[in-house]
Design a protein around this nucleic acid. Structure first.
Length: 588
DNA sequence: GCCGTTTTCGGCCCGACTGTTTTCAGTCG
């Protein structure tokens, strides 16, 4: 999504937060939250739309009023209502809503009764014992707030999916031995393969909930038990990750799985659909009146409301229910569909393993080909290749391929896009390669227009076949650089260039909504590991998760193609007369 | 604030757990 959309969504969330603290109509609050979500996952740049005088009116959940407010926020960063709300309450107060255990009512009470408005002030009030005296608060609540605030002020709260996966797998192993345990699944955003995970939701079915809960709270990593009942418990692990467990009867497995997989927005939409049919969905099943009519499997739940099963990665209320109803759900790509990997490093530059070791590992992963794409010379710290070393590596690749048929190693490069949009290696060095992957590794802070122009110019070089990690973000570390992604996708279509979905767990760059942008434009996406070591091909699983979240099917992904079909795509258009914009080399 | 072949007003998803309560409000997912 364009960065500006994120800012607009944040402003809408802020309105919702402040309205909530003012005890506004909850459905009005929800309207703002829904609008924020819509703007955030929109493929179009709302700021650019506003500049053209277009609004979002008519988009589901956005009427005349919200459309007008969004346009104003897009133009000047705020709107009169937000200005007014900001004037009526302290600036930092919305941050308190992020603290577990603090909702709008308590935040309002703390602010009005104790005149505290920042996390630090509330923490001090808790430590001074000033909170327990307030109506509706007690000593335990005060201690809960104190400990939640200490965590909140300590560190960021969302973990990369790959890290969460290690905890999830450990928890599953720990619980598997419990007697009477039937199903055991980690649901939630983890199952939806979101790029970061705020907490883990473990769902179990079986005869003895108490036994499962008992085993669960005794996991060696548990630092604190937040709650425990006979069917549900919550803990915080030593690393700070919160894990919630829920145990339901086996006949409710499907309903509970759907329920705890979410997303919340998807569930709300699904239950509304059920309501229209005179049904009620909860975590125990689908009910007509008092009678249970479905719930043992997820399929049965969706069937009850007239829909086919919807893959978890799509459950974000971004049109999947309509698509399911229309029978147009995509047949999502699977890890096994990948035939190759077009972004791989070796120890010739900053990789950890040799060319041969990388080839062996890729083969073990089930791939039929890889492209070796080292950094170019500008990346001095990574020992980037100059033309001579690139040629040397080509010779080594020839030798490897000569050993026999079957697995193939392609010659490539991850060439730097320099600040002016030119490439870090001359065309003469690039022309002989099988695949040229271009990427930005410097000057992340350029203004949007310049950054976009820089990348567009790089794509005009006819040697470039793939644009790698298109926004340069590092999850939780570095923001994406500010680019006009719709413009880049348009250029990629025009130049027949693929766009990479970098599967490295810290990158996962392309994001899901941009995957859909590519899909809709017919621009192939390359799901690549960016492997710097033999074990890194395992990253592909996360790239596939992200691709599925972006609605991609096998045909949308470049490296599902057979080697001959891939080569056909990689082939440079024959040189033609200048000015032909779909083929031919650009003038230098 | 949005939305509507039953409605332009009156709806808007559902349940568990905790703590502070004597029957429930607040929060969370």
């Amino acid at each position: 999504m364009p960065v500006a959309n994120l800012a607009i969504a944040a402003a809408l969330e802020e309105i919702a937060d402040r309205l909530e603290i003012q005890d506004a109509n909850p459905f009005r609050v929800r309207a703002y939250r829904n609008a924020a979500r819509t703007v955030q996952s929109l493929g179009r740049d709302v700021q650019a739309m506003a500049a053209r005088g277009e609004t979002l009116e008519g988009t589901p959940g956005i009427g005349a009023d919200l459309a007008q407010k969004i346009a104003e926020i897009a133009t000047r960063g705020s709107c009169p209502m937000l200005d007014r709300l900001r004037g009526e309450m302290p600036a930092a107060i919305t941050e308190l809503l992020q603290v577990p255990g603090l909702g709008p009512r308590r935040v309002r009470a703390l602010w009005h009764e104790l005149d505290v408005e920042t996390p630090e002030q509330v923490l001090r009030a808790a430590r001074d014992g000033r909170i327990r005296g307030l109506h509706g608060f007690g000593e335990k609540t005060e201690r809960g707030i104190e400990s939640a605030l200490a965590v909140h002020l300590g560190k960021e709260r969302r973990l990369a999916l790959a890290i969460a996966a290690e905890y999830a797998e450990s928890l599953v192993r720990h619980l598997e031995g419990v007697r009477g345990l039937d199903h055991l699944v980690v649901a939630g955003s983890f199952r939806r393969m979101r790029e970061t995970v705020g907490d883990l939701d473990v769902l179990a079915t079986g005869t003895s909930g108490a036994a499962v809960v008992e085993r669960f709270v005794n996991h060696p990593e548990v630092a604190e038990v937040l709650s425990r009942g006979t069917t549900r418990a919550g803990v915080r692990l030593r690393g700070g990750l919160q894990v919630d467990l829920r145990v339901v009867p086996s006949e409710s497995f499907g309903a509970a799985l759907a329920y705890f997989t979410g997303s919340k927005a998807h569930n709300i939409a699904l239950r509304r659909l059920a309501q229209e049919r005179g049904l009620k969905i909860n975590e125990y099943g689908v009910f007509r009146g008092g009678k249970r009519i479905a719930g043992d499997t997820e399929e049965s739940v969706y069937r009850a409301v007239g829909l086919p099963w919807i893959p978890p990665e799509l459950r974000e209320d971004r049109g999947e229910l309509d698509a399911a109803r229309a029978g147009t759900l995509p047949r999502l790509i699977e890890l096994g569909d990948l035939r190759g990997d077009l972004h791989v490093h070796t120890d010739a530059t900053d990789g950890r393993d040799s060319l041969e070791a990388m080839a062996v590992a890729a083969q073990a992963q089930g791939l039929a080909y890889i492209a070796i794409t080292e950094h170019s010379r500008r990346q001095a710290m990574a020992h980037g290749l100059d033309p001579a070393r690139l040629a040397q590596q080509g010779t080594a690749i020839d030798r490897l391929n000569a050993r026999g048929p079957g697995f193939r190693v392609l010659k490539g490069i991850e060439v730097d896009i320099l600040e002016d949009g030119s490439l870090d290696l001359p065309d003469s060095a690039l022309a002989g390669l099988d695949v040229v992957v271009a990427a930005v590794h410097s000057q992340f802070g350029l203004a949007r227009a310049r950054q976009t122009e820089r990348i567009l110019r790089a794509l005009d070089n006819a040697n470039v076949r793939v644009l790698a990690h298109p926004t340069g973000r590092l999850i939780g570390e570095r923001e994406p650089y500010d680019v006009d992604m719709p413009a880049i996708v348009r250029k990629a279509r025009e130049r027949r260039v693929a766009i990479e979905l970098n599967a490295h767990p810290e990158r996962l760059d392309l994001i899901d909504t941009h995957c859909r942008l590519c899909k809709d434009a017919g621009v192939p996406v390359a799901v690549d590991s960016d492997a710097h070591g033999a074990s890194d091909f395992a990253f592909l699983r996360y790239g596939i998760g992200q691709a599925r979240r972006g609605w991609l099917n096998r045909d949308d992904v470049l490296n599902t193609r057979t080697l001959p079909a891939l080569r056909a795509f990689l082939e440079r258009p024959a040189a033609t007369s200048p000015g032909n914009r779909t083929s031919g080399k650009r003038r230098a």
